[in-house]
Computed example of a mutant assay.
Amino acid sequence: MLRKLARLLRINRRLHRENENVLRVKLRTDQLHAARTRFAMQVLTVLFGAAVVLFLGWRGVDWAVREFVTENPAFATKTIDLQTEGVLTVEALRKMAGVRVGENLMSLDLARIKRDLELMEFIQSAAVERVLPDTLRIRVTERVPVAQVVVLRPNSAGGYVAVPHLLDATGHVMMPPTRTMVADPTALQIDWLPALVGVNPVDLKPGRQVESTQVRAALKLLAHFERSAMFGRSDIRRVDVSGLEVLTVTTSTGGEITFASHRDFDTQLRRWRAVQDVATQQSKVISTLDVSISQNLPARWVEASSVPAPPAKPAKPAPYRRKNA
């Protein structure tokens, strides 16, 4: 009986110790969980506080920028200093730029103004800058036409109308400006421009560059002609680009000069000048001449007295003379 009682006491003490161990483990687990919860709350509090500070700072900076810069009456645009060496009026350019007096100078998107101007077919480049406190300065370089292409387009009456397209030296296509766009009405005259014939109308997209290699070669020939010794001694009125690797030039006297479109134009122009000098000495006028080959130039000329006097060359309008001066 005593042994049984002793065994029960031992079992009871063991169970008591085990319960104490379980309670201690549970206490430590609860304490760890509480510590983690407090840490998480502290982190969330710090993050929330930082977010509040950042938001208030951002709103404060935004308010300061609007109050002191973008909505400040002191930065209202009072002057739009717009200059160009071309033929377009200041008012036309201002409308293309999309700016007006009174807008806040600091809130203007200068990149957008520059992009909008350079998207215009008449404009080659534009520079835009702020001049504090109230001036917007715009400098424009316009495209100068060097040739024209006349295309027949159908009209509403069922017929066709001749529509001129202008090309600058780089082959960019322009439509002629309207009267309200130019300050000098003489700038509307285009009869002084050489005509390119044989051009595919599909290639003529206003504001885009012509892709035809023959058209580009013709424009290059015109540029070399103006710098050559033939300039002033003859006049190019038309360039036919429909040939294969050749350009056929028609002069004001009706002569036809054939150039190789893929060879050096300066050399070919010197050949033309040499033959022109011989013809002048013999009182003759060139009827046809092929300078695309290097030797034994095929040429045909007629008596100068048998050729009607060429019509007077249309004068280049004054605005373009100033541009090229």
Rank of each mutant, 00 (worst) to 15 (best):
P201V: 13
K205R: 15
P206M: 09
G207L: 06
R208D: 11
V210M: 10
E211K: 14
E211A: 15
S212G: 08
Q214Y: 08
Q214A: 15
V215K: 01
A217C: 07
A218V: 06
L219Q: 03
L219N: 03
L221P: 03
L222R: 06
A223M: 10
H224L: 09
E226Y: 12
R227K: 15
S228D: 07
A229I: 06
A229V: 12
M230P: 00
M230H: 01
G232M: 10
G232C: 10
G232E: 08
R233D: 08
R233F: 11
R233L: 14
I236Q: 02
I236T: 04
V239A: 00
V239Q: 01
V239C: 02
D240M: 07
D240H: 06
S242F: 13
G243E: 12
G243F: 13
L244C: 02
E245G: 01
E245D: 12
V246G: 00
L247A: 11
T248R: 11
T251Y: 03
G254C: 12
E256A: 09
E256Y: 04
I257R: 00
I257K: 01
T258P: 00
F259I: 10
F259P: 04
S261I: 07
S261H: 08
R263P: 09
D264N: 15
F265A: 06
F265L: 05
F265C: 05
T267Q: 12
Q268A: 06
L269S: 03
R270K: 10
R270S: 09
Q276I: 03
A279E: 05
A279I: 04
A279G: 04
I286C: 01
I286G: 01
S287E: 15
S287M: 14
T288G: 08
L289G: 02
D290Q: 03
V291R: 00
S292I: 04
Q295S: 14
N296I: 11
N296L: 14
L297T: 04
R300Y: 13
R300A: 13
W301A: 04
E303W: 07
E303C: 08
A304R: 13
A304F: 00
S305P: 02
S305A: 15
S306L: 13
V307M: 13
P308M: 13
